[in-house]
Each structure stands twice: as structure tokens, then as C-alpha cells.
Design a protein around this nucleic acid. Structure first.
Lengths: 208, 208
DNA sequence: AGTTCATGTAAAGGGTTTTTACATGGCAAC
DNA sequence: GTTGCCATGTAAAAACCCTTTACATGAACT
């Protein structure tokens, strides 16, 4: 039987792993995290239904790989936005938060795989590592921001980081998805994050 | 063929709809939102694989019904916690936020169906209605809280409500699930929410 | 050239989905 | 009460998906 929509030049695909990830991203984008089957991803990549099993134990392992790629891209985007705190900490911090929202908006398939695929993160250690790395970038930014406060009145970095993470994730999840945001509101996600951080940082006694 | 684990007394089940919802809740709890099939829910309820089609168009419709029940229970829990702002607005507001986290922790199956099932809320109008109702309770609480500020320095209710909703949802989603919270932290969800609201309300210029 | 091994296919068994035809019995109208 | 309606359940069948097993291909190394 011919599984190829467009016949390949060789018997071997060449880069099926990447093709499967791309297929999964396409399918997640259009039908949600759970909206496609392993066989469908294979068809989308132009191979037989059994071929994906050469690269992944099961469908979940494919989604986990997608999530891992997502965390890496996410971490890189946050790092780039932070830009070592230059030109100044306040502006960089704001950019970093915006980068969180932009990633959720512009890479909804990655974001879904990362936070909504329902896969047990404990089962995939490399996933935990990649996720921790992304959160570390956020903590670096918070550390620098907190350091602008006078010594003795600096709030704990971990607490502030978790607050910021939760707000970003909450706004992104509820209001800031690319496609049909679940609970769309008359205020944009960016405005919501900015207004929140304005209030929150004032509450911390930090000037911005 | 006999589909009943324990034989029923009558040919008709009696309350298959409820049995299917209970089955779905059980299965979501143990295997995630996408971790079971329509046929599996039928087996769990002790009926043939075709029986559920008498009550739901497809599997998604069952999950949507579960989510709807969830929103109703959620709304009721928030309302009860708010208790008309008695004995005082500050305490009631705090209780309402805690109720959000407690619901996510104690009813993880409902919470998953509501926020992580990936179903298009626009497809199910009664779902949108139920969700709006829950959010309205939150807005009532915020309205009362904002009213404690001197006239002229009152922040917009919608903005504050969305901030609060986002924080609650972010904390609950990331750190506050009953089972294996995805990104568990050394600070409890309750502490995180309380510390955040302390900072945030101070930033708003509200005394608590 | 020959061997090896990663990568792909074919085929088969079993489960799921969904429809269609049929069976049951609760209930309302007489 | 009896009758007939019809909501609710079952059986069976066709199509598709999952997963494994045995086999085919060809790239890389000697």
C-alpha cells in the first residue's frame, strides 16, 4: 500500500521525528491536544501507521517531545526578552512578562502541549528540567527587580516569582490564546498584565 | 451479551445520565480529561457501548455536561463563601478566593473538565452561561471590596475582577491541583494567594 | 562487495465508534 | 385494568484505530 501523499524519493523518510513533531503541532493547533491519533500523525507525515513506533513508545511520548521542544523555545524567548536586564531592569522585566503572553498567543500548539496536555511531568525528567530552566529565567528577572528596592525592604524572590508566574499563566490561559480564547474580555491580555503589575509592584513598594 | 457487572433489577437503567457523569468524573480523576473513551464510560456505568448515544451526541457532549455541572457547583461554592459579604467584606472576599482554590483542589475532575478539557466553549451556550454566572459572583465580591475605597479613588471593577480571576486560576492550575500538582512549590497555594492579595490590595490603596 | 542495523511496510488481532434494527417496560389515556 | 406510545436499552455490523510481529529496504562501515 502507498502511504505517501507525495511519493518520497527514498524508502526511508529521512527525518521522520521532525516530521511527526510538525504534524503534531499542526494537529494540536487545529484540533486540540487530544484531538488527534498516533495514526493520524503518521498519515500527516506520509508514513505507515506503524512507523511512529520506531521513534516514540506511544502517542504520549510524542506529545511529551513536543512539550519539551516548547519549553526550550519558551525559555529562549524569555531569555531574549530579558536581555540581561538591559537597557534597564524595569523595561526588561516588562518585556519578559510580555514575552510570556506573546508565546502563549503565537505558539498556542506548544503552549497547549506544555500546560494542557495532561501528561504527567514526573514521568518525563527531561521535561521537568526544561520547565525549570524556563522558570529560572523568570527568577533571574525578579531577583534583579527586587534588588532595586532598598536593602531591608526586599520581598522574597521565590514568592514574587510565583506570583508573577501565576498571573502570567492565568491571563494567558483564560484570555490570551491565539485562536478562540476561552473567556475573551474587552481588556487585552497585555493591558491586563501591565495594569496588574503596576498595582502589584506599587504594593511591593517598588518604583517602576 | 451481559454488560452488567452487577445485574440490574430492570431492563432500564433508571438514571444512566447521572451514572455516565459519575463514571466520567471517576475516569477523569484517574486518567485525565482525555484518558477514557465513550465505550469505557458505558462499561463503567454497566450498560452497552451504544447506550450513551441515547443521552449524548458524542463523547464531547458528555464532557461538556460534566463541565456544566462543574460550573454550577463552582458558582455555588463561591456564592456560599461570599455569603453576601458577611460578617465583613474583607473576610468574605478572602473566603471567596480560598473557595476558588479549594474547589480546584477538592474537585479536580470538575476543574479539569471546566478548564482543561479543550472543548470549545462557544459550541455549548449553556456552558458559557454557567461560566458567566460563576464569574459574576466574583464581580459582586470585587464590587463590594472596591466600594470600601473613598469615592474618586476606586479602581475599575472589571479590571480588578479579571486580575483576581487570573491569579486564582494561575495558582490553582500550576500549583494547586489535588493529585500531582504539575509544578509543586514549597509555598502552599493558599499562602501564595493570600500573600499576593495582600500586596495587590495595598497597591490598589485598599485597606484590609 | 558484504554485513549490520536503523528505519520503514504489511498484515493481523483486538478494541472503539457509530449506525441500524429490534427489545423492553414505564406511563398516560382511556 | 388494558392498551399503545415512546423513551431507553441491546445486538450486530462496518469502518477505523492501536499495537505487535514478521519482513523489506538501504545507509554506513568494514
Amino acid at each position: 500500500m502507498n502511504w505517501h501523499k507525495k511519493p518520497r524519493d527514498s524508502y526511508h523518510h529521512g527525518n521522520l521525528r521532525k516530521a511527526l513533531i510538525d504534524a503534531a503541532l499542526d494537529l494540536i493547533r487545529s484540533k486540540g491536544t487530544g484531538g488527534f491519533t498516533f495514526a493520524e500523525a503518521a498519515r500527516h507525515a506520509g508514513v505507515s501507521p506503524a512507523a511512529p513506533y520506531r521513534h516514540y513508545k506511544d502517542r504520549e511520548a510524542l506529545v511529551a517531545d513536543v512539550a519539551g521542544q516548547g519549553y526550550k523555545a519558551f525559555s529562549a524567548a524569555m531569555d531574549k526578552a530579558w536581555n540581561d536586564g538591559k537597557p534597564d531592569v524595569a523595561a526588561s522585566f516588562k518585556r519578559t512578562g510580555e514575552a510570556y503572553l506573546l508565546f502563549a498567543r503565537d505558539q498556542p500548539a506548544y503552549y497547549s502541549a506544555m500546560f494542557e496536555s495532561g501528561l504527567n511531568i514526573a514521568t518525563y525528567p527531561e521535561l521537568r528540567t526544561a520547565a525549570d530552566e524556563a522558570f529560572d529565567t523568570l527568577k533571574v528577572a525578579v531577583t534583579a527587580l527586587v534588588a532595586t528596592a532598598p536593602e531591608g525592604s526586599r520581598p522574597p524572590v521565590l514568592m514574587v516569582s510565583l506570583h508573577v508566574w501565576a498571573v502570567c499563566h492565568g491571563i494567558a490561559s483564560l484570555f490570551g490564546r491565539g485562536d478562540g480564547a476561552a473567556f475573551k474580555q474587552p481588556i487585552s491580555p497585555q493591558e491586563l498584565l501591565e495594569s496588574h503589575m503596576l498595582v502589584y509592584l506599587r504594593g511591593l513598594g517598588l518604583k517602576v
